[in-house]
Amino acid sequence: MVHVKTIEDLKKIKEEFGKRIQVSGKNFDPEKVVQIKVGLGTSGIASGAKEVMNFLRDELEKRNIEALVTQTGDMGYSYAEPTIEVKLPGQPAVVFGKVNIKKADEIIERYIKNGELIDGILPTNYMTI
């Protein structure tokens, strides 16, 4: 059990988190793996985001692509659920909308393998802090 008692403890966790990410017990360098976030809010799940997430996990492993697939909350694009964010190493993250199994397959084959963008990208139209 980790006990956080000082600001240094928090900063340490923050720093460590940025350096490595764990996938099923193995450590990965975040700079080298494909990172995918699936919007698993209620609206995402209702539109089939869980199936998409399972598909991505299974298929990326089958196709020998080192990738980290995690869940996140509602990205806000209810009109385009399920939504996923894909970050290829060294590139800005791209959000895809209306991702069903077929689209997820296309994303793996064309975007993740070849860096080729495909229809259905959701542009970021907000500032973060």
């Binding site: 956080v4 809010g41 995690t70 996140t72 909350g73 509602d74 990205m75 964010e85 907000y126 500032m127």
Partner: peptide
């Protein structure tokens, strides 16, 4: 047009991972 303050982490972090929130 948009700024995310209350939604700053929503759709960015894994809500079930406290370390990501701390990060």
């Amino acid at each position: 047009k948009q700024i995310r303050i209350a939604l700053r982490n929503c759709g960015f972090i894994d809500p079930e991972n406290i370390e990501e929130y701390i990060a």
